[in-house]
């Protein structure tokens, strides 16, 4: 059954896949960061906080609003951009070079990285391969878009 995006179920499904593929994520190394995901839709938004620790997604929860002081950074984007990214991942097995997080967020024109502390911001790049591979797991999950 398809899991709807955005939802905690979606991130939980990726978390399950991540645990199942421990070896791959171990090879990429420690990932210790807590970040927010904000999916905008017609002026409204749904917000999630993802807490990664060691090699796993420890916890994901939906929140009303993301407090930038409590996360390292937040990835913010319109539902349309997120959808395009996930569909691209589905088609290719992983994001192609125009749909990976770095590219989409580079100039903040599609996805935007928002942060309070530049050290927190740098964590996105320190852990980029793990974060990208985490989102790439979407290729193994049936996703529907509301």
């Amino acid at each position: 059954m398809a899991i709807s995006f955005p939802s905690t179920d979606y991130f939980e499904a990726l978390k399950g896949k991540m645990t199942a593929q421990q070896e791959k994520f171990r090879r990429l190394g420690f990932i210790d960061t807590t970040f927010g995901v904000k999916v905008g839709n017609n002026g409204k938004a749904r917000n999630f906080v993802l807490e990664f620790e060691v090699f796993d997604l420890k916890n994901v929860r939906e929140v009303d609003a993301i407090d930038l002081k409590k996360v390292d950074f937040m990835i913010e984007g319109d539902a349309r951009v997120w959808r395009e990214m996930i569909e691209n991942i589905h088609r290719n097995g992983e994001a192609d070079s125009s749909h990976d997080l770095n590219t989409l967020a580079h100039f903040g024109e599609q996805l935007k990285i928002v942060y309070d502390d530049p050290d927190g911001h740098d964590k996105l790049y320190r852990f980029m391969e793990s974060i990208q591979k985490f989102f790439d797991l979407s290729s193994q999950v049936e996703v529907s878009f509301s």
């Binding site: 770095n102 964590k123 320190r126 391969e129």
Partner: peptide
Amino acid sequence: MGYAMQDSARQTA
């Protein structure tokens, strides 16, 4: 560059 950005981000940190 994916790997290189991880390595250089540690330097700035």
